[in-house]
Write a protein that binds this DNA or RNA. Structure first.
Lengths: 419, 419
DNA sequence: CGCTATTTGTTCAGTGGTTGAATTAAATGA
DNA sequence: TCATTTAATTCAACCACTGAACAAATAGCG
């Protein structure tokens, strides 16, 4: 049987860096103009784009024509603008063109969502189930079903899915294989092969396989990058059962030499502390992981599902439950020590608390900031912002879908060539 | 008086990202071809470049013509090559074109060097002096004198200086101002203003001021990137009086949001450890800084100059002096704990020990590797290499000069336009 | 020695894409 | 109503790359 559902991991999609042919020029300008349209707060006119990019109005017109023909851009209706002169026709991202499918497998739920070019979430399904006892093949089967329904819904809305991304709570290699997902109990799961039986969700576009598998913390950070008002560089920490981080540098996710960056949960906080299951000692996860916080708060036996734990902690903290407050202060201090290391190393000016940490930001922020103040050499000149993630619990799925859309915006040539 | 010696810090030189005009195309291909020539091990022919880049032979010929006219490339003499067919004419970087001037101010010496396009060090002067009691203005005056002599020597060799970079052991802001250089005793030193009195070393090329001021650890890492066989991403740790790090990601130095990345010396190793002068507690510098190692080795009172300390330690370690061996093992463990954090976070596969650590690598490596093994989640699948820097004590100056040359190679358009 | 095969480098017409100026389009305001 | 103003399109000119044909320079072979 031929593999119908091609798949890959996180290897950069053949970064060109090669010859700059004649046509590359147009491709670059398509990306440039589309990027400006996407980044603009209100629909810009062709003339404004010309002034903004430095291209001629003639060129912008030609480029925009291509983008409109490719259903990536539409003209906004009568623009309410003052002043004399012919009124500008605003340009905005099309709401009925290509869209991205985002998928997520987590410990206690599956999720699928569809995001259009403009970043709107057009479909969203969450399927709650404890997936630890389920085999990877079965879990992926259920996910494919969810994805199929998402596709039908998207098509009904006039959208065309142009790719999909899947977030998993673990390490993924270049081939899309899940090397290790401890909290899910997966090890060396060949996602591409297991999905080969299922019908493809989309066709390959521009050499990019329709499904990209990535770490959920990475995808959540990407979601934050493109949903929130986050700056070009920040650290996104997701506190779930484990603690993961996505590092966004200069507007791009940094994946590391092998795509395994962001393992912040196993940064040592106290090198001589208690042993961690990773083999090290005194890892952050032992002080600020979900289990650690719950047990410090005296809620160890409650056995709450992951998303409930955070809600419960928020309730108790709001009620000023002393043990919970103490547990959160301790966790915040540990996070702060770690974040101080990261900021000293990378000089980031923003830290986003995501996942289960997001609702707890009010209690975690003070100790985190205190440690940064104490330990970061440059803190005096340049304050570090600590803020909650703007996306909710589904950040990874939305971020996954957003990453697909983002790639289209960054390289529209591929999508247009497909026509 | 007009400022004759323009200056700036580390802000990226107006990253284009803007319009891709007609001419940009040529500029990109100039950079592409020149980059391949620079990266090739033996002088490639035009035909080989065409095959390599994907451009046509016709285009490569035209591009090369421009590069030769601009003195960036020369034809190698009769290439000893076998096989039938017209013999290829190899192309190599010109040894008599533009060159970079690298400068360094450190605690106990000043240095100036000139590096040509091919990466050869064509001039090198070190002026030893304890600069702590000297005023910044005087120190910079002496440096300007050194630079002037370097320029004369370079010109005598037929080289044209196309820019300069200055490394200082401290934090530098966008304007080239040294915000803080603790070991030098500098604070808020406006390098550009202080150098305004001195004659300019070069003219502005392509909008880039002739002098760029940067942290010495950053420049040393850049030097390693382009001298050593280092891969695209690595961490370069310089152990001097303080401990600095340069982070190279995907072949580019990562500077952080404000250019202050790499402050690895103040990453907490033991959050509750002894207080550090930075205000934190248990910083790496307290366990692996030069003073810490010397005092742990029982050499505290020796008061050796910075570069002698490392030599002395090497001698004693070679002689298996027990206290020294113990001190190095402890320092290595502290470095290892910190490096493990970094590798967990960034997934780097190479760590370079530079500065004073380079000659001590034999003793530092085992404990560093041991900590990585224990604490890095992905260590089992992907080994981390720990190796000494290939450049010696002058890595920063050479790296500074190299960074100038590197910019010309990356963007030859600017240099060619100057003609 | 001369011929062929082979590979390198150049020349030249053709084409795609941007430029700049002129032109058309559509509104405001006196 | 018409001048003014700004937006968008049209079109000849130009720049850089492409592809193919051609010239150059060598090795191998009879």
């Amino acid at each position: 049987m031929t593999v119908m559902w091609q798949c890959q991991g996180v290897k950069p999609p053949a970064a060109p860096a090669g010859a700059v042919r004649q046509g590359s020029l147009r491709e670059l300008n398509l990306a440039l103009v589309l990027g400006r349209i996407a980044a603009a707060r209100r629909p810009p006119s062709r003339a404004a784009l010309a002034a903004d990019t430095g291209l001629t109005r003639a060129t912008v017109s030609a480029v925009v024509e291509d983008l409109v023909a490719g259903r990536l851009v539409t003209e906004a209706e009568p623009t309410p603008r003052a002043g004399a002169g012919r009124p500008a026709r605003g340009l905005m991202l099309a709401g009925d063109g290509p869209a991205g499918l985002g998928l997520e497998i987590n410990v206690d739920y599956l999720a699928a969502c569809v995001v259009d070019l403009a970043g709107q979430v057009r479909h969203h399904t969450v399927h709650r189930a404890d997936l630890r006892p389920v085999s990877p093949a079965d879990a992926l089967g259920r996910l494919a079903e969810l994805a199929g329904r998402a596709r039908v819904d998207a098509n009904a809305q006039g959208l065309t899915l142009a790719g999909a991304a899947l977030g998993v709570p673990g390490l993924v290699d270049d081939a899309g294989r899940v090397r290790l997902a401890p909290n899910l109990g997966w090890r060396d799961v060949p996602v591409p092969e297991l999905l080969a039986d299922h019908p493809p969700l989309t066709e390959t576009v521009d050499g990019v396989p329709p499904l990209v598998v990535d770490n959920e913390a990475n995808l959540a950070a990407l979601g934050e990058l493109h949903a929130g008002a986050a700056p070009g560089s920040f650290l996104h920490i997701s506190g779930e059962v484990g603690i993961g981080a996505g590092i966004v540098l200069n507007g791009a996710l940094f994946r590391g030499a092998r795509g395994w960056s962001g393992e912040i949960g196993h940064i040592p906080v106290r090198p001589d502390g208690p042993p961690c299951r990773c083999g090290g000692r005194g890892c952050l996860e032992l002080y600020a992981g979900q289990e650690a916080i719950l047990s410090a708060a005296g809620l160890a036996g409650a056995d709450l599902p992951a998303d409930r734990a955070s809600t419960r902690l928020t309730q108790l903290a709001t009620a000023e439950h002393p043990a919970v407050l103490r547990a959160l202060a301790e966790a915040g201090t540990a996070i702060g020590v770690t974040v101080a290391s990261v900021v000293n190393l990378l000089d980031l000016d923003t830290v986003v608390l995501g996942g289960g940490y997001a609702p707890l930001t009010g209690w975690l922020r003070p100790p985190v900031l205190a440690e940064i103040e104490r330990r970061v050499l440059t803190a005096a000149w340049s304050p570090v912002t600590v803020r909650p993630a703007t996306l909710g619990a589904t950040a990874a799925a939305v971020g996954a879908a957003g990453s697909v859309v983002r790639r289209i915006i960054a390289r529209p040539g591929g999508w247009l060539a497909r026509l």
